[in-house]
């Protein structure tokens, strides 16, 4: 659905993007990770027909973003990292304006807007002025705006930045719903664990270069050969930690108060064997799962390795 070939963007002497090759399948959720200035927003802007690349090509839905921008714009819903709203409009008027900007017939708009407001949990704010909405609500309204023309691809640049934890959770739930709707989503975030739950693939980018790309698990294994496991026990947490530390495939155990975070070097079969071992040692295990919230480790490991 999204493909870039040797995509490069230079701002004067600064290399914002260098030979980026990317391939995202239809219906996939792709997480883009990288520090500020890594080239995430530049890539997203090129894919949204807002920026000319210095060289290379980018395709969305098979259309070249440079030669067929109208077709690409119809396929893409773009939400920038910072965006404003029209203060003197009500939420329904705001969405109606963008529906008009995609030439959606007037007769279809009321039903469509009502559905979108329901999707983003803003039905109770349909008559509220956009200005009066909280940041989280504005972000959700922005997401509804992205969906107004039913795009196949969503490009979301740091959609959760500046949101409080509750708003982040609400946003994540909406994104999960969109994933269920088979939308192809490209999302960037600084809050790395946020991506883990919803992403099929992640790409780590730094200084304009893609350092690594793959599923979260693959990336963890590729970099360190380590899986991060979450182990919750009913009682005797310290004894459980000691037993785990003695296991040859366990590299490290961190006590996180309500659970143990275990760095484990082994396959899925080895994980099953570890659980069996804990139960044999009569450890009262109530939860044993792979922790998807290890993106920070993955990211740090990849960028550290590149740095060294």
């Amino acid at each position: 659905m999204i493909r870039t070939q040797q995509l490069t963007k230079h701002y004067g002497k600064t290399k914002a993007l260098e030979d980026l090759n990317l391939h995202i399948e239809k219906g996939q959720v792709f997480g883009f990770i990288g520090p500020n200035g890594a080239g995430k927003s530049t890539t997203m802007m090129i894919l949204s027909c807002l920026l000319l690349p210095t060289s290379g090509t980018a395709y969305v839905g098979g259309y070249n973003v440079l030669t067929h921008p109208e077709e690409v714009r119809q396929l893409v819903g773009y939400m920038p990292d910072f965006f404003g709203v029209y203060d003197n409009l009500k939420t329904t008027e705001y969405l109606d304006f963008y529906a008009g900007a995609y030439f959606i017939p007037k007769s279809k708009r009321p039903g469509l807007i009502a559905d979108l407001l329901e999707l983003v949990n803003l039905s109770n704010k349909k008559d509220a002025y956009v200005d009066s909405l909280s940041r989280g609500m504005k972000q959700r309204l922005g997401l509804a705006r992205c969906l107004i023309h039913n795009p196949e691809v969503l490009i979301l640049d740091e959609p959760a930045s500046g949101l409080d934890p509750r708003a982040r959770i609400e946003l994540r739930e909406i994104l999960k719903e969109l994933k269920r709707m088979k939308k192809t989503i490209m999302i960037s975030s600084h809050i790395l664990p946020e991506l883990a739950e919803i992403c099929d693939q992640i790409g780590v980018i730094e200084k304009g270069r893609m350092l690594a790309c793959g599923s979260v698990e693959e990336m963890a294994l590729r970099v360190k050969g380590i899986h991060v496991l979450l182990v919750r026990v009913l009682k005797e947490r310290e004894r459980a930690a000691r037993i785990l530390e003695e296991h040859p495939q366990v590299k490290q155990v961190d006590d996180q108060r309500d659970h143990l975070r275990v760095m484990f070097t082994g396959s899925k079969a080895d994980q099953a064997a570890l659980l069996k071992y804990l139960l044999a040692e009569e450890v009262p295990v109530v939860d044993f799962s792979a922790d998807k919230e290890n993106l920070e480790d993955v990211f740090l490991a990849i960028t550290e390795r590149m740095g060294s």
Binding site: M45, Q74, Y78, F83, G84, Y98, A101, Y102
Partner: peptide, 13 residues
């Protein structure tokens, strides 16, 4: 300045 221009430019207008 209101940061609405980029969004407007991604529409069919």
């Amino acid at each position: 300045e209101r940061q609405t221009l980029s969004i407007l430019l991604t529409t069919q207008l």
